[in-house]
Design a protein around this nucleic acid. Structure first.
Lengths: 246, 246
DNA sequence: CGCACTCTTGACCGAGATCAACATTCGTGG
DNA sequence: CCACGAATGTTGATCTCGGTCAAGAGTGCG
């Protein structure tokens, strides 16, 4: 019934964290899903919604964002293929965030009911999903630290390091003799909204990183020649991503 | 064996969110716990630790914090009686945060093993605990928005509103004709570390709030004469706390 | 091919940081 | 219970990082 390939990014992500038994993997594969496609900069869920299903990203990039009463937007998270950005709605009725696409996306929807049934019959799967939301929380904490304590230059570098690390774990980073590269659909305005900075200052910080040869960003592609040097600049320590031993 | 009163704040917190059956409540009451007391400004858990138990706060106030490589501290969360600050360690092996007391604390430790067993036998209890961690995550997002998008004055007001709201839901706020009051063990330096501001500017923002009659803060007690006016000043909307209908 | 979005650069400004000194409160031991 | 030292709070002066404004240059999409 379901196209198994549709579950690929999800299983890849989960397997990068824990080893599930064949039976557990089968249970996930038999979750009914429904595919839906979105274009660029479309709202998937909106603050105040009460979803009865969650989705994971088969392809594309989305952001979690919320808007201040004064009209300022904070991007609180960025999610890539394999992520389940609104898993929280499984237990929190009302959305306190919106989710918006950065790129065209293919999403696979799973009904909360079905997820709950799966969690009941396979507690280890429940644990993995729970864990997933805990890692999201750890990332929020790190972003908070980034916004609250690091200067612009370091902050931008840190953000880029995280993006690289996360793309790597799901196999979306390319590595060759020039360094590591990922696709970079994020505009400077959006980066500003994520880091609590103006787009002008984002621009200047990116240039500083370029000048020092830490990044090469053009045509929606980011190349990092030396990840260790960038991590140095961004005070980056991947512990908070809680990846299993590489 | 266990003193039932020890479970009070935890049950109060949980019951403020969901209705559990008697049997489920009993199951929680029969969780083996171990009490431990801490003094002021003591580390409970530290970055890099690998705890095999979690605790909930029977009494006192603690903060979740992490320190930048440059030596700057971000306070990422503040937890009060009833909260389970390091529940994340149930699924994330290595702590990416430290937890430190603000006041003398009485903590009740529960072994991860026992929590896991409880979750397996009572899935609804598992859901409640999961939910709890999701609310923590929602608070992180809001703090990020606060730090990234709101100016100092609004930011401080927002923070105070949250503290009031959370103290109210667990019955730790007093309300009389002068307004709502809570105990306030947080120094201005700590407040600065939580909001990403210098203590000097915290001081000035607090004074601005005082001048406008929005708060009355002295002797470690905070009084808010009109919570609605303060919420106006802080752009506060409690949705993100995901409290059940009041 | 033209319009809209994104990026870049320069000039200026201001919120909030930093520094420093002093006042007040609190906790501790005598 | 008091005294004294340390932590916390307050105030003023100065400085700076990053915001805002504005205009021009690329880039890409319809």
């Amino acid at each position: 019934m379901n196209d198994n390939a549709a579950y690929m990014p999800l299983l890849a992500r989960i397997n990068s964290l824990v080893k599930l038994s064949d039976e557990e993997q089968q249970a996930i594969l038999s979750l009914p899903i429904q595919e839906k496609k979105y274009g660029v900069r479309e709202d998937i869920v909106h603050e105040g919604d009460r979803p009865t299903k969650s989705f994971y990203i088969r392809e594309g990039v989305v952001c979690v964002n919320k808007t201040t009463r004064a009209g300022r937007r904070q991007i609180a998270a960025i999610h890539i293929a394999g992520d389940i950005p609104d898993l929280q709605s499984l237990h929190l009725e009302v959305m306190d965030i919106s989710i918006t696409t950065f790129t065209p996306c293919t999403l696979e929807y799973m009904r909360h009911e079905d997820i709950r049934t799966l969690c009941r019959s396979h507690p280890r799967v429940a644990d993995v999903l729970w864990r997933e939301t805990l890692v999201d929380a750890a990332i929020y904490r790190e972003w908070l630290t980034n916004a609250g304590q690091r200067d612009a230059y370091t902050r931008v570098a840190h953000f880029i390091c995280e993006m690289i690390a996360r793309h790597r774990t799901v196999g979306l980073a390319e590595e060759d003799e020039n360094g590591i590269s990922i696709s970079w659909p994020i505009t400077q305005i959006e980066l500003g909204d994520a880091l609590g900075m103006s787009n002008v200052h984002i621009n200047r910080s990116l240039q500083a990183l370029r000048e020092r040869g830490l990044i090469d960003l053009k045509k929606r592609t980011l190349i990092v020649p030396s990840i260790s040097r960038l991590e140095e600049a961004g005070e980056f320590d991947a512990t908070y991503l809680h990846l299993r031993s590489t």
